[in-house]
Amino acid sequence: MFDLKDLYQQVIVDHNKHPRNFGRLEDPSHEAEGYNPLCGDRLHVYLKVDDQDRIEDVRFEGEGCAISMASASLMTEALKGRTLEEFRALFEGFHELVTSSGDVACDETDLGKLAVLGGVRAFPSRIKCATLCWHTMKNAIERSGVARTE
């Protein structure tokens, strides 16, 4: 059985308390708002993408539970300097990490630090907390608007 400690790992508690890349980004090339009406989590992500499709800067602001805050913080760390192509691969990999029922098919090492969020698999009601920021980011890149995880 998964223990609470698998969910609230030290990295997650730390990123929740001290979220990285937190705050507004002036002059973003892309931005989107994400909202989870069930628990009230609200995120705004900002991106600056250069003409080589590389994520030059990324920030977020909002409020939510530890899982959503830590996930957003870890996501921004993982995305800085990556191309949009790489974002799509990470999006798929992360999605599989937190939703796959059996052994994780994707290589966790590719996901780096993001792998600490794998614990949410055992907490079905919390998966959308971890994925809200990723859906919001996808929306920001593909279109503007409000992402929902329901």
């Binding site: 609470l4 969910l7 989590d41 939510g64 539970c65 530890a66 899982i67 907490f123 907390c129």
Partner: peptide
Amino acid sequence: GIHPHDLGTI
């Protein structure tokens, strides 16, 4: 310092 949703899970 603890979101209600985290409290709910714990």
